[in-house]
Simulated scan of single mutants.
Amino acid sequence: MRFSFGQLQGFVAVAEERHFGRAAERLSMTQPPLSRQIQKLEHAVGARLLERDSRGVRLTAAGEAFLVDARRLLTLAGRAPDLARRVAAGLAGSIRIGFTGASAFGVLGEVLNTISDRLPDLRLELSELVTGDQITALGDGEIDLGLARPPFDGEIFSSRPVHREPLVLCVPEGHRLAKLGRPATAADLESEQLITYSPDRARYFHELVIRLLPVAHHNVAHAVSQIHTVIWLVAARRGIAFVPASATRMTVDGVRWLELAGFPENPVELHLLWAKHSTNPALSTVLKALEPMTARLG
């Protein structure tokens, strides 16, 4: 079935005017070519759409049904150029965002709300991925923007810090450290069993903990990749753990959060990450919308 935009316009005009002459005048054309347009449209559709009589023109049952979709098609066609311009300008379309599970505790919601407030016609598609998988997905063009942990290859990717926060200590309820009455220090942790992070699946946090606290192999109870798993293992009294402060927003029975003393103030970083070769026009508008968030970090 093939019919033209002009044929649809002609049919809708005749259907609304109920008169070929008035419809032709409305379309700034003469009546004979309008009649030929309608004939070609009826042939393409395979059904009679209009009936003429002495009182003018009336729609057949098929014409009544076709009119609904004809108007819809014309509306969509009318919107198409504007939509294309808005997509090209990065104001519409979609942006695919990868994020680490830990970012959902805090900054992810602010990022999404900021984008939606400033770019309401942009569709947001989310993928929960560890940093390594985000890097692969960005390189393959499967996502446009990541919320990931450094370091990154500066030749392939651009990045911008979007959030910094302290570490806190997560200990089981009733643990001796929970009774210190002061922030915990490295000396307080020397004999403790530590739940730490996988060097492969959670490399950033693994290396961060190693830098902050020399951890002997015999002091490692478990090494896992997800922060929520770390916290649940602490609740099960399998050891203690370092977690980002935003994780304290989780409600988990059986754990306590302790401040740390003698450690860097805000060692946990989260960055916006994108591939330099990205061709999605929405990426630049999203990055501009997020500038106030990144500007806070200097």
Rank of each mutant, 00 (worst) to 15 (best):
E17N: 13
D200L: 14
A77P: 00
F152H: 04
G56R: 02
V130M: 08
E128V: 13
L112V: 15
V168P: 02
R79E: 13
G6E: 12
L145R: 06
V57Q: 02
S35Y: 09
R256Q: 15
G254F: 12
P292H: 12
L180T: 11
L270G: 00
L147M: 05
A13L: 02
H271D: 13
H163D: 06
V243K: 00
I210M: 10
L180S: 11
A148V: 07
A62G: 00
L50C: 03
D69V: 06
G146N: 10
L122H: 04
N219H: 13
L112Q: 04
N113Q: 15
S278Q: 10
F242W: 05
N113Y: 14
A92N: 01
T251K: 13
L27H: 04
E51V: 15
E142N: 11
E17C: 10
T285V: 08
A221D: 04
V234G: 04
E190M: 09
T251W: 03
T131L: 02
V220N: 01
G174D: 07
R18N: 07
Q193M: 12
Q226T: 00
G56Q: 06
R72I: 01
S278G: 07
L112H: 06
R55L: 13
E291H: 11
V171R: 06
R123L: 14
I115H: 07
T136E: 11
A92L: 05
E128D: 10
L145V: 09
D82A: 13
A187V: 06
E259P: 11
S103H: 02
R203N: 11
A275I: 01
W232H: 14
R2F: 08
A216H: 09
L67D: 02
T229G: 04
A261K: 12
A89R: 11
E42G: 00
S191E: 14
S35C: 08
T185F: 07
L112K: 09
T75P: 00
E142G: 00
R237K: 15
A89M: 07
V255S: 07
R182H: 11
K288C: 09
P33E: 01
A80C: 02
I115T: 11
A89K: 07
L27A: 03
D69Y: 05
T294N: 04
V286L: 08
T251V: 12
Q7M: 13
L91C: 05
G298P: 07
E51P: 00
A23W: 05
D121L: 12
V224W: 12
V111M: 08
G56F: 10
A245T: 03
E128N: 14
A102Q: 08
A44V: 08
L124G: 01
T30S: 15
R18F: 03
R48C: 05
D82L: 12
I210A: 14
D140L: 12
R79I: 05
G141Y: 15
